[in-house]
Design a protein around this nucleic acid. Structure first.
Lengths: 243, 243
DNA sequence: CCCACTTAAAGTCCTACTGACCATAAGTCG
DNA sequence: CGACTTATGGTCAGTAGGACTTTAAGTGGG
C-alpha cells in the first residue's frame, strides 16, 4: 500500500480504493425487495451486504455499476433504471483501510433470481422491511435507507414507477408499484385519471389482458416522459416516520 | 502500465486520489453567482475552476467540503446550506491521473469577497450565465450544470431559498431569490399568499423595515420546515428544455 | 399640507386538480 | 342466468393557484 502513495501524493491527502455499491429494488409478491448478497470473504464474511465491487482502471463510475450489475445478477442493466445516489467516504467505513464507495440505485421489474457472482456467495431478494432491521456490512444500511428514500421520492415527480413493470402492463400493476413502495393504498379510479391524463406517462397499446377473474384490463407501455407534472400526490401523512 | 497496476492492487482495480469540489451559489445584484477561482498551478494553470481540493487522511467527505469552504472563502460553512451533489469519476477527467471528485452544492446569502486560498490565486463571484459559457477546468462545467439544475429543482419543493437571504428578510427579498434563480418573474401577491400559508416556511418577526422609497415591508426569518408542501409551482413552461 | 410616486399587503374571480364517492362494464365461475 | 371480481367511467365538493384589482403606508416635491 505504501508503494501506492508514490510520488503522486505529497502531504496528508488520500489515495484510496473506490468501489460501487448497488441498491437494486424490485416489486415482487406485494413487497418491495432489495438484492442482498452473503459475503463470501472477509471482512463481514457470511454477513449480508449490498452487491458491489471495485472500480477498475480505465472504467467510469456508471460503467462500473453496469458491470457489477451484470456480474452479480446476470441482468443487462440497459433494461432497468440506473442512477447514482451519492458517494460515501467516512474514514472508518471499511476496516481494511480507506475506501470510498459510490452508491447506485437500480429499479427494475421482477428480476430473475440472480446467479452467484464472483465475490458473492449467494444472493437473495430480501423484503426491505427485513433488510432495514438486518445487520448489513459496512455502511450499507445507511446506503439502503437513502436508496429507499430516493425511490419513494422519485415516484412522486417522475415516471420511474413504470420501470418496475414488465411491458406491457396494466394500470393496476402500475398502481400496485406505488402502493407497495409507499405502503399506502391508492384509489384506483383517481389513479387512473391521473396517469392517463398526464402527458406521455403511459400509452395504451390498444390490447387487453384477461385475468383469471375479473374484467380484462387494458394494456399500456411506458411513454416518453421522464418527469411527471403535476406530481403524483402522496397523501400528506408521510410514512417517512416509519423506520 | 500493466505491471504498475498489478503492483498497485491485486487485479485491475483503481487506487486513486479523491477530491471535493464546491459549487457555491449566492444571489447578488439581480444575478445568481458562482464562486470560481483562477488556478494557480498546472494543470489548467490560469484557467477558471470550481474551488476544491484533496480529501485528507482521516477526513470524511462532508468534513473535507467544509474545510475547503473555509479555506477558499473564509466562510463558516455552518451558516450555509451544504449538500452533496454526486461523485464524478470519468477515467480521463484529470490529465495527471485517475482522480475521483465528490461535488458539493453550497447556498448562502451574499457572501464576502473571498480571500485567496492555498491553491487559488484569486476568486471571483461570476454570474452563472457567464460561467456556463466559460471554459472551466476538468469536468467542472458539467458539475456546475448539475449544481444549477439541483438548486433550481430544490427551490420547488424545499425551503432552501431562504438560505440565500440574510435574516431577517422581507418577502420581496425571498421572492427575488426565486426570480433570479428561475429566471422568471413571480406575482408578488400570489407568492406572498403561498409562502405565508405554507407551514413553517417563514415566520414573521413582527418588525418591519422601511426602504428608501415605498411602503415598509414586514420582516421574517426562516421557519423550521425543510420541505415545502405543496411545492412552489414553477410555471409549466419550464426551462428544463434548455440544454 | 396635499399630491404624485413607489412598494407592500390584502382581496376577488375563475379555472384546474384532487379526494371521496357512486355507477357501470366485462370478464369468470357456479 | 346470477353472483362475484376487477376495470373503467362519472359526479360533486373542496382547495390551490394564475390573473387581476384594491387598499395601505411609506417617501419626496410643489
Amino acid at each position: 500500500m505504501a508503494v501506492v502513495n508514490r510520488a503522486l501524493k505529497y502531504d496528508g491527502t488520500v489515495s484510496a480504493a473506490v468501489t460501487v455499491d448497488l441498491v437494486i429494488f424490485t416489486v415482487r409478491e406485494a413487497s418491495l425487495r432489495v438484492l442482498l448478497i452473503e459475503r463470501g470473504k472477509p471482512p463481514f464474511e457470511g454477513g449480508l451486504a449490498l452487491p458491489g465491487g471495485y472500480v477498475r482502471v480505465g472504467e467510469g463510475l456508471d460503467q462500473a455499476a453496469l458491470r457489477e450489475l451484470a456480474e452479480e445478477t446476470g441482468i443487462d442493466g440497459r433494461e432497468l433504471h440506473l442512477e447514482q445516489l451519492r458517494a460515501f467516504g467516512a474514514p472508518e467505513r471499511d476496516p481494511r483501510g480507506r475506501t470510498f464507495t459510490v452508491a447506485y440505485l437500480a429499479l427494475g421489474p421482477d428480476l430473475p433470481t440472480p446467479v452467484a457472482g464472483t465475490d458473492a456467495a449467494t444472493a437473495h431478494w430480501v423484503p426491505v422491511e427485513a433488510a432495514l432491521s438486518a445487520e448489513l456490512a459496512f455502511d450499507h444500511l445507511a446506503i439502503l435507507k437513502e436508496g429507499l428514500d430516493r425511490a419513494r421520492a422519485k415516484l412522486e415527480y417522475t415516471t420511474v414507477a413504470a420501470a418496475f413493470c414488465r411491458q406491457p402492463f396494466t394500470l393496476a400493476e402500475l398502481r400496485h408499484v406505488y402502493e407497495v413502495i409507499w405502503g399506502i393504498p391508492l384509489d384506483p379510479s383517481n389513479f387512473r385519471r391521473k396517469v392517463t391524463k398526464a402527458a406521455h406517462f403511459v400509452e395504451a397499446t390498444g390490447e387487453s389482458r384477461t385475468p383469471e377473474i375479473g374484467r380484462p384490463a387494458a394494456l399500456y407501455r411506458r411513454g416518453s416522459a421522464e418527469l411527471l407534472f403535476p406530481p403524483m400526490p402522496r397523501s400528506a401523512d408521510g410514512d417517512d416516520a416509519s423506520v
